[in-house]
């Protein structure tokens, strides 16, 4: 992998803290995330509900709210330890250097403010002068495919469709030319034809601006189409970290393999029953001894009572003691 590490996360831990007793031990829900993101890379973070993928993203931006608390680990962005920044510096960093787009665009939009003003405000807060902010807002609207920016920038969020609102949020995220864009299920609530338009837009922007992107999703189709490298999360840990083609061709973790097998094959005319994964994932906070997938894993053995670290296998890393050549299923 070429390029420098833009973001390095080491042993990141998040707990749910019992109310009113800040000193007491909480229930850990993210169990030590290690992750390095290279400049220019597009990363996909996939996992099912409760796997900890969204919480991890909020944690690395220090955006956790009560009762969630960051209980361990280090986040380095452009060589700076985020723990050393005060709230003011963090606010400067978010928006300017790191931007976020969420599933529901209304999370980021003020319903009572004209959309153009909202995009402009992001720039004004970060010291861009008025005339330039105005020009750049219109330019951004054009760039993200919002028709007739002079007129539409004066409209309110409710006057737009879901897809258009997500474009506005993307324009806002891009306003200050961030080095890193974190998008959490940004197209999940949209229709597929609109999703396709947004994916096309983000892919273009990535080429054009060389932006680094972390794309959180449950959709393995989106991952296959868009990203360079995939992080698979399960039970609050990373179970596999692999280049996208390796992940699909030769998954190194039994969970990844079973997850891929449970998808319908879009070119199989026999349409066999879908492969199931019996059992359920651990609930957030549930204490699991050893590998979190152990109880559902057909390859589990005694060693799996000890939590596996991410082990390098070729270009991939997987948190599994049993290498694929020893798998029986």
């Amino acid at each position: 992998m070429t390029g420098q590490d833009l973001l390095v996360v080491e042993d990141l831990r998040v707990s749910v803290m019992p109310s009113g007793r800040r000193r007491a031990d909480g229930q850990e829900i993210v169990h030590g995330i290690d992750l390095a993101v290279h400049a220019g890379e597009t990363i996909g973070v996939v996992g099912e509900s409760g796997s900890g993928k969204s919480v991890t993203m909020l944690a690395l931006l220090r955006l956790l709210d009560d009762p969630l608390a960051l209980t361990g680990g280090r986040v380095m962005f452009q060589g700076r330890d985020l723990a050393s920044l005060d709230e003011n510096e963090l606010r400067q960093l978010r928006g300017r250097d790191i931007a976020m787009v969420y599933q529901d665009p209304m999370t980021s939009l003020n319903p009572l403010m004209r959309v153009g003003d909202q995009v402009r405000e992001v720039m004004l807060v970060h010291g861009v002068d008025r005339t330039e902010a105005q020009e750049r807002t219109l330019e951004l609207f054009r760039r993200v495919g919002i028709p007739d920016p002079e007129r539409t920038s004066r409209a309110y969020p409710h006057e737009f469709s879901g897809g258009m609102r997500q474009r506005i949020v993307i324009a806002m995220a891009l306003a200050l030319g961030p080095a890193l864009l974190i998008a959490d299920e940004p197209t999940t609530a949209l229709d597929v034809t609109i999703q396709q338009q947004i994916l096309a837009l983000v892919a273009d922007l990535k080429d054009e601006l060389g932006m680094t992107t972390i794309w959180v999703t449950h959709d393995l189709g989106v991952v296959a189409r868009l990203v360079d490298r995939v992080i698979v999360m399960y039970g609050g840990t990373i179970v596999e970290d692999a280049p996208v083609d390796r992940l699909f061709a030769a998954p190194q973790h039994p969970y990844t393999r079973r997850l891929l097998a449970s998808l319908p094959n879009p070119t199989d005319d026999d349409r066999p029953p879908l492969a199931q994964i019996p059992g359920r994932p651990p609930l957030p906070g549930e204490i699991v001894v050893g590998c979190p997938f152990r109880d559902r894993c057909l390859e589990a053995r005694d060693v799996c009572f000890t939590t596996p670290p991410l082990i390098q296998r070729g270009e991939s890393k997987a948190a599994c003691w049993v290498p694929p050549e020893e798998w029986t299923s």
């Binding site: 597929v192 999703q195 396709q196 994916l199 096309a200 892919a203 189709g221 296959a224 868009l226 699909f248």
Partner: peptide, 14 residues
Amino acid sequence: SVPVPDPTVHQAIQ
């Protein structure tokens, strides 16, 4: 428009 979960399938992002 439906993304296919297979990176070897050529999927034009447009």
